[in-house]
């Protein structure tokens, strides 16, 4: 599978776009690298996880468009309240129910230390095809 640039799929721009590159994409799983290597708080890490989930769900056959929104976070385990440096996000599809997609995402430091885990459910947003 080809590896699209996150900016070409997501509609986040400027400081809101937290992903720089897709590192791996295969059968219902995705690994991304963050776009900045500075300070992170856990909500920002969670937002990066959400973008990874949106990217993964958007790349699946019949997946969501870039108008998708977050319907739910569940089981967000905060292993580190803050982090300095780049982050790698690993996501896989947990389930699909009608037009909703749920992905489990792990955020890790470059030394593989776990920073945050979350299940992210995406819903089709406004203006999506029925």
């Amino acid at each position: 599978m080809s590896r699209p640039s996150p900016a070409s799929v997501l509609r986040h721009r400027g400081p809101a776009l937290l992903l720089e590159a897709v590192e791996a994409l295969e059968d219902g799983a995705l690994r991304c690298r963050s776009s900045h290597a500075g300070s992170w708080t856990w909500p920002r890490v969670l937002e990066g996880a959400a973008q990874t989930a949106g990217l993964l769900a958007g790349l699946q056959p019949g997946g969501v468009t870039n108008a998708a929104v977050i319907a739910e976070y569940r089981g967000v385990v905060i292993h580190a309240p803050a982090h300095e440096g780049p982050i790698h996000f690993h996501a896989h599809v947990e389930r699909r129910l009608l037009r909703f997609w749920r992905c489990r995402v792990a955020a890790r430091a470059p030394d593989t230390r776990l920073l945050l885990e979350a299940s992210v459910t995406l819903a089709p947003g406004r203006g999506t095809a029925p």
Partner: peptide, 14 residues
């Protein structure tokens, strides 16, 4: 900021 241009709303994570 950047979430999203022309259609801003507060990110759920925040």
């Amino acid at each position: 900021e950047g979430h999203f241009p022309g259609d801003p709303f507060v990110p759920g994570a925040l």
